[in-house]
Simulated assay, not measured.
Amino acid sequence: MPYPDPPARKPADPRFCTGPARKRPGWSADALTGALLGRSHRSADAQERLNAVIARSRGVLGIPDSHRVAILPASDTGAFEAALWSLLGARGVDVLAWDGFGRTWLRDVVDQLDLDGVRVLEAPDGALPDLTAVDAGRDVVFPWVGTTTGVMVPDARWIAPDRAGLTICDATSAAFAVELPWDRLDVATWSWQKVLGGEAQHGMIALSPRAVARLATHTPPWPVPKVFRLAEQGRVKDALFAGATLNTPSMLCVEDALDALAWAESLGGLPALRARAEANRAVVAEWVAARAWLDFLAADPATQAPTSLCLRPVDPWIRRHGEPEQRRLIQRMADLIAGHGAGYDLMGHRDAPPTLRIWGGATVDPDDVAALLPWLDWAFEYLKAEHGVE
Rank of each mutant, 00 (worst) to 15 (best):
P2N: 09
P6E: 12
R9Y: 05
K10V: 05
K10H: 13
A12D: 15
D13A: 12
C17V: 12
C17H: 15
G26E: 03
A29R: 15
A29M: 13
A29F: 10
D30N: 13
A31M: 11
L37T: 15
R42V: 09
R42K: 12
D45W: 12
D45G: 08
R49V: 10
R49S: 07
A52Y: 04
R58P: 08
G59I: 07
L61F: 07
G62A: 09
G62Q: 07
S66A: 14
L72Y: 00
P73V: 06
S75C: 09
A83E: 00
W85N: 04
R91P: 06
V93A: 06
L96Y: 02
L96A: 05
W98Q: 00
D99N: 12
F101S: 12
R107M: 14
V109S: 02
L113Y: 01
V120Q: 07
V120G: 04
V120K: 06
V120M: 06
E122W: 08
P129L: 07
T132M: 11
A133C: 04
A136L: 06
A136Y: 01
G146N: 02
T147R: 13
D155V: 11
A164L: 10
T167E: 04
I168A: 04
S173F: 11
R184K: 13
W190V: 01
W190C: 01
S191R: 10
K194S: 13
L196V: 10
E199K: 12
I205T: 01
I205C: 06
S208W: 01
P209K: 09
P209E: 09
A213D: 01
A213M: 14
P225C: 09
P225T: 12
P225F: 07
P225V: 15
F228C: 05
R229S: 13
E232P: 03
Q233K: 14
V236K: 03
K237C: 11
L240M: 08
F241L: 08
G243S: 08
G243C: 02
T245L: 07
T245R: 01
L246P: 00
N247R: 15
L252Q: 05
C253G: 11
V254N: 08
E255H: 04
D259W: 02
A260W: 01
A264R: 01
L270M: 02
L273Y: 09
A279V: 08
A279E: 08
V284R: 00
V284I: 14
A285F: 07
W287G: 03
W287N: 05
V288L: 14
A290Q: 15
A298I: 04
D300Y: 03
A305R: 03
P306F: 08
H321K: 02
E323A: 14
P324K: 09
E325V: 15
Q331K: 14
L336Q: 04
G341W: 05
A342T: 02
G343Y: 02
L346N: 00
L346F: 00
G348M: 03
H349Y: 09
R350K: 13
A352T: 03
A352R: 02
R357D: 11
I358D: 00
I358Q: 03
W359I: 06
A362Y: 10
T363L: 03
D367C: 12
D368H: 08
L376F: 05
D377Y: 00
Y382N: 13
Y382E: 14
K384I: 05
K384G: 10
E386I: 14
G388M: 06
E390D: 15
